[in-house]
Design a protein around this nucleic acid. Structure first.
Lengths: 238, 238, 238, 238
DNA sequence: TATGAATGAGACTTCATTCAT
DNA sequence: GATGAATGAAGTCTCATTCAT
């Protein structure tokens, strides 16, 4: 899976081992537990993605994880918790991805480059990532999952809004936030479309880049003031 | 509901008189059956939309429809069939909507007007239609449903491609088809977003209109030849 | 079906029409009812015999009888009653058969001839009769049905015991009764075997005749006294 | 039950020591499973035999076995499988019985003794064995069950035909096979009759022995050649 | 009287969860 | 802790029977 380290504290732990708990003996046990949890989540991801939600029984998951049903219940109070953890791991993966993306040298270039590179990168992530297929391909959705997805999107939009602050100066903050939200949702939706139609996937993402460029172009380089489509009331409403 | 023409009226409504059965006897029976099916589907829509898929048991549907479980099985072989019928009814509603839209005087105007009006109309449809909430709000998805949704989208895209043929002359057919597909999917995705965030819904749709306009603008009035973004390889791949 | 006249009063109604009820108007109604009952039983027999008990739903029977479920309930209080009537009709057919057999000139001949002819006749009846297949081939049995079958067998045995009284003089009455019972049950069992193995059916019945002859031979012509196997305690116990 | 050797004893019972699993851990589990299966079958036998097929619901069986419905489904995929297993256990019991019978010293004696003893033994088996009552008394029959019963009868007939080869020399093989089949079916049918009429059961079986003796007598000691009833065409037809 | 749609009890079966080993 | 057999609540579906038309 793409996130096999705890996303917490990712900010500062370079390659340093995580701080040991006082009793050294406990470590191997915790380590084994962590591994087992990962195995369970991997298995759950596979089952959800391949068999669909119908066949995603706890027994199937346990079998695929080469463990027992009882062991799953050692770590997860119920089936929903397994799915939630799966979703969280997927979301954490995206968070990590954006951490890396926005921490890199990308931000030095012009906004068009950032957009193109960013969209390409996230598209690649989704193409390769099993977690994505597990969460979106299993055709099982919960309010909680959607809410958390929404929250993630808002979080990402916030970070992108910051970038917009640098690259699209002259756009008022609220408008900036709205634009970022639109971009995030639009790209997100197109990623799903691309996944649903593999044969057109690349074309869709290429075109999506064009759409986003055209959408943001009027705001670039103070163009916002010039065009008739400046910061609108609509965007500020949220 | 989008099928809200009361069939009882069919006896005297002008244009296409349906073939009357010789005796009035059979009519009430068939009519009652049809009503019952509608009642069941209405109930199913409500249960799916409000309680979610978990609580959408056949018993719950029967109770909400004020009928018995047995009656549901008189018309639907199993639970999946109920959901399928719900989806079909929803899709049929959209088809009817587009029939009306594209048969009306709308096509006389410029392409921007058509787009704006069309997007507004479909947004209104989705806001009012219970079928939409039932199908998308129940958080239950099946491969079949998604496939049929895909097929519907392609169908709509085909019709829009025809309109593009008139309003955006000079764009080669394959590119036209691809553009239509992108527009349909993009608007579709934004409709879902708008539904998920009711407080921003109108803003999202307003902005969607802008996005689509900007996306298509280069192709209007022979602009395709002028801009650097003419018919691309990508669009022809499909 | 083989019994399409009421077995009651079969003894004296030659070809004369059954006595009319006072109100002549009623007759056609009753007649239609009788026909309908027969149609239902015919249909039930077919369904039971061909589809087996699992598929023998009231709806299937009604459909095969080209009538409605409601009509069946007009004549039979429930499903068991339909089956019971079917069994009764089958049993009545056998009764009628024995009435004819024992009233005919058969009894004039020697006992061996009577046996052979009787067994051949009943075998032929079973081969041709649909009621037999309906009752025994449907693989559905009830205590009531078996009890009535037992009663029928005893009844037949009684009548055969009377014949034995004439043809096997010297055998005490209780022994005679027991022998008759054994013969009836033995032949009955072999008839079932013959039905279960159509390819050996005729051979089995031929051999059955031999078995019965050998079994009864010691009792013929006063031989009972000579052989060591006279009237035993066993046979008298019943 | 006819399988009443307690498998727990298997550890020390001489002749064929089953391969012990390395650790005692696995044994109790497998053992418990086997016991549970037996308990379920016992319960099913009782329910089928006493309540009849209608009342033989999975719940009733579970209750009688003092287990849960789920446990039954752990071992049997559906209700039919339970019944099939019951039938198989009954048939296996009969097979075991014949294995013992034909391996014993019985075959040393004259054919009349063999017959009498064999019939007595099988009658006793049927009187004691609950499986018999479960299978035949439940009044539930399936094609599969009857076919397997037929196959069992043929199997037994084959073995008896071998005995006939020794005890009734001079009878041609095909005739011998036919005689064996007749004897098996005849005795089988009379066993059913005896079960249906408990008060006459013993008398019926005594008489059955006489019938079979009389039937076979002509073939004994080369008598086949003397009597007029030698190997007939009939027997060879099968 | 005839019809067949409607009813609903109850059967079968699944699978998340528990718990003895 | 780990295991997986056992549990049983709950869901789906059937079909005998009723009853309005």
């Amino acid at each position: 899976m793409f996130v096999n380290r705890k996303p917490r504290r990712s900010k500062k732990s370079g390659s340093a081992p995580p701080p040991e708990p006082p009793v050294g003996r406990r470590v191997p046990t915790q380590e084994r537990s962590r591994q087992r949890v990962e195995r369970i989540l991997d298995a759950a991801a596979q089952v959800f993605a391949s068999e669909g939600h119908e066949a995603a029984t706890m027994e199937a998951i346990a079998a695929r994880a080469e463990t027992s049903i009882g062991s799953i219940y050692q770590f997860f109070p119920n089936k929903a918790a397994v799915f939630d953890a799966l979703v969280r791991r997927y979301h954490d993966g995206i968070r990590t991805f954006f951490d890396a993306l926005l921490a890199g040298p990308l931000l030095e270039g012009p906004w068009e480059t950032i957009l193109d590179a960013g969209i390409d990168a996230i598209a690649t992530l989704h193409e390769t990532d099993a977690g994505f297929r597990a969460v979106w391909g299993g055709l099982h959705f919960t309010k909680k999952m959607l809410d958390e997805g929404d929250a993630l999107n808002r979080e990402i939009a916030d970070r992108i809004a910051v970038v917009f602050g640098q690259k699209l100066p002259g756009v008022p903050p609220r408008r900036r936030a709205f634009l970022a939200m639109m971009v995030v949702e639009l790209v997100g939706a197109m990623l799903l479309l691309a996944a649903r139609r593999p044969e057109q996937g690349r074309a869709v993402m290429t075109e999506t880049k064009a759409v986003v460029r055209l959408y943001l172009a009027p705001y670039a380089q103070g163009a916002a003031e010039l065009s008739g489509r400046g910061p609108s009331k609509l965007g500020s409403r949220s």
